[in-house]
Amino acid sequence: MADTKTKPQWLKVTYDQTKVDRMNHLLDGLQLNTVCAEANCPNLGDCFGSGTASFMIMGPNCTRACRFCDVPHGKTAPIDLLEPLRVAQATQKLGLKHVVVTSVDRDDLPDLGATQFVNVIKEIRRLNPNTSIEVLTPDFQGRTELLDQVIAAKPDVFNHNMETVRSLTPKVRSRATYDTSLKVLQYVKAHAPKTTFVKTGIMLGLGETDPEVYQLMDDLRAIDVDFLTIGQYVQPSKKHYQLREWVPMARYQAYYQVAMAKGFKFVASSPLVRSSYKAKEELEAVDGK
């Protein structure tokens, strides 16, 4: 196996304490979770430094224990009816032109959290009519009546992550299958308004092969997924899924070329790319906003 102990030079980020402190101070008063902090995102300094964040609703604890993820698995909290308003107010306070809302998995709830997504979208739009909204959702166990609810709220971007190739999905994800996630994306693409872009993302460095990645791209293009993000997996701790490889930059570039040739509207492929990283710029690139 390749050396995975030494971090490559491209895994380098700049940290401006003053700007990050200012953002933390703003967020502290809002009683909201960000996936930036909960997942210990390597881009936190960059995003907080430039005044953006991605909200993680219905958390901080998740009902699933995916082996790649740093979000804690544990006892869930009751749904907070004021959370939608607080997310909307935070969007306003931060002056976000594009907001990303994700969540923990809530398999404990009868609606798996779909209603809270809808309420958050509605509140953001009520207070921020010019802000574009991106949701990054769980698989809702593939239940189409729940997907219908979220689709009806008309997010600008509907993201659901495949996370990895077919063969590695059972090893990396918990209670999620490759086919359920594909079905979610297919259903959303087929039933959402044409104004909603459908997006997914994967991690590299888990042991996937080129043919498997290309097959995944083909599976996504067959159902007309619009955006694809590809980034490097960084193992959160020794307990998590073992990193197999720091994928060389050349392979990210090769995947970008192939994915664009296969017809995605937008592809972000680089080690530090995460689902919501530079999401605003992504939407602007295809939407002319």
């Binding site: 971090k7 030079q9 895994l11 380098k12 980020v13 700049t14 940290y15 401006d16 304490q17 003053t18 210990n40 995102c41 390597p42 300094g45 960084v234 959160p236 701790s237």
Partner: peptide, 20 residues
Amino acid sequence: TGDILFEVETDKVISEVQSQ
């Protein structure tokens, strides 16, 4: 202000810390 003073390795990245 803004010059990189030092680099630190955290659990996920190498952080370049700027002078304030």
